[in-house]
């Protein structure tokens, strides 16, 4: 992994809850419309209007990788992702149990686990999300973006304060 390596960056505030990411993910990987088979899922608290997309974080010290008894899960540092070797996978679902984000799926028909593979570098969820609630950015960019977003809120408050003081001629 190096500084040019990209990662999925989720900004839940921008999510409109439409679930197109789920649809295109399932179609891309399985040729079917079925959110159960998507690697990304928008968790919702509809009565409060909160939508939070959840997906694999491609952890460096990945619990799924560590727990796998047959070493079927490994890191692919070129793309910065954690991948499953289905030839080795015995379908024990230990990885499903330990993932802190629920990002490891299990297909009861194929009897295999599945997870986000970043679509080999062109994540479809990102491609279809016009709002950029899901984005694909160099890993070093995310903290910079977050800083800027947080600072923006302070900047806005500052501007409002200035406007108010000029109105009141303080």
């Amino acid at each position: 992994m190096h500084e040019k390596t990209k990662a999925l960056v989720i900004n839940y505030e921008k999510c409109t809850g439409c679930r197109l990411c789920e649809l295109v993910c399932a179609v891309f990987h399985h040729g079917v419309s079925n959110p159960q088979k998507a690697r990304i899922k928008v968790e919702k608290w509809e009565w409060e209007g909160l939508y939070i997309p959840m997906s694999c974080k491609q952890c460096i010290d990945a619990p799924c990788m560590n727990v796998c008894p047959v070493r079927a899960i490994s890191r692919d540092d070129t793309l910065g992702r954690v991948i499953v070797d289905h030839d080795l996978c015995i379908g024990c679902r230990s990885c499903v149990a330990v993932c802190p984000f629920g990002a490891m799926g299990f297909d009861p028909v194929e009897k295999k686990v599945f997870k986000c593979d970043l679509c080999d570098g062109d994540p479809q969820c990102v491609r279809f999300c016009d709002e950029k609630a899901v984005d694909y950015l160099e890993v070093t960019r995310e903290p910079l973006l977050r800083k800027r977003e947080a600072a923006e809120k302070i900047a806005q408050a500052h501007k409002r304060g200035m406007e108010l003081s000029s109105e009141l001629e303080i």
Binding site: C18, L20, L23, Y51, F128, E131
Partner: peptide, 9 residues
């Protein structure tokens, strides 16, 4: 907010 799969929201 959007309905299912809609980008117009």
């Amino acid at each position: 907010a959007g309905c299912f799969a809609c980008q117009v929201h």
